[in-house]
């Protein structure tokens, strides 16, 4: 199987790079960089599928940049193969976000097959939403259930876009997808900015998103998400619609109607004051809150304050 995009090789070792060049020439044209830092411009612009990182030199700086990259879902599914010197101890994998590793002396006989395998494996992974690169339902369920099982206290928010369907009907799916991608990035980055550790963002499907955060920050973060959504959504409309702040489209029955610009509704629940045993209970309440939120005109958030 051939790599569709060039593979990236980060190494300063001349012998290693020339070996790699020779070995992979038939499946891809590799691009060589001396360190992660200098490869970033290329990675950002081309989003390659495969990266080979030589761990021998500049280890700390390279690994730090790599981990930052891998924690962004857009670049997260780039397969990373770490090359270790034969005598080098292996690190804790949570400190090096690689997908696979190989010893230096095994390059000659194994490299090609390893690359093929990881490209193939990447193709099979379907748990992430292809539009937003965010984790889908299986992961979402697991995330929430795990936390419940561990007895953690946390907040769950359901977000959904109002008047998304008429927008889609008016401008087509392509434009609708753009909005979903924007919302995915907006929620992800807002959540990660407000709570870098222990938060989670998933894409349920369609225009439904979910995120998990600490109870103390989830309401404020949701408000910020709604604010930014309102600021940004205008640019997805054509100029006339944006100025009039409404569009002509059709309702579910197919009759022509006027709709306002899209807004976002967010419903939040948490287990501070009451217990949830199962994922489905918490998701039911969160989506109830979202429905309350949807009844209010404009972008809106609703926090669950009930105690029983």
């Amino acid at each position: 199987m051939k790599a569709s995009r060039p593979i990236v090789v980060v190494s300063r070792d001349i012998v290693l790079t020339s070996d790699i060049d020779r070995l992979v020439r038939n499946i891809s044209s590799p691009l060589f960089f001396r360190d992660m830092k200098s490869s970033l411009d290329f990675i950002y612009n081309c989003n390659p599928d495969f990266l080979l990182l030589d761990i021998a030199e500049d280890r700390d700086a390279n690994v730090r940049i790599l981990n930052d990259l891998k924690s962004d879902p857009i670049f997260g599914h780039m397969s990373v193969l770490a090359v270790f010197p034969d005598d080098c101890e292996l690190p804790a994998w949570r400190e090096l976000l690689a997908d696979d590793y190989i010893r230096r002396s095994m390059i000659e006989c194994e490299l090609l097959k390893r690359i093929e395998l990881s490209l193939f494996r990447a193709e099979r992974i379907v748990q992430i939403n292809p539009l937003t690169s965010l984790p889908g339902n299986i992961t979402i369920t697991r995330q929430i259930q795990n936390r419940l099982d561990k007895g953690e206290k946390f907040g769950v928010a359901y977000a959904d876009i109002d008047f998304f369907k008429p927008f889609n009907d008016r401008y087509g799916f392509g434009r609708g997808d753009e909005v979903l991608k924007m919302v995915g990035r907006l929620i992800l980055n807002m959540v990660k900015e407000q709570q870098p550790q222990g938060s989670f963002v998933g894409h349920v499907g369609g225009d439904d998103f979910i995120y998990i955060m600490d109870i103390g920050v989830i309401e404020e973060t949701s408000r910020k998400i709604a604010d930014y959504f309102d600021k940004m959504v205008g640019t997805f409309y054509d100029a006339e619609d944006r100025e009039q702040r409404k569009i002509q489209s059709v309702d579910r029955a197919g009759t022509g109607k006027t709709f306002p610009l899209m807004t976002i509704s967010i419903g939040i629940t948490h287990n501070q004051h009451r217990e949830f045993a199962h994922y489905s209970e918490i998701s039911t309440v969160a989506s109830e809150m979202k429905h309350v939120s949807k009844k209010v005109a404009g972008s809106n958030i609703q926090m669950d304050r009930r105690k029983a």
Partner: peptide, 8 residues
Amino acid sequence: LILLGLNV
């Protein structure tokens, strides 16, 4: 910046 994220 919001859409790219601080890391990027």
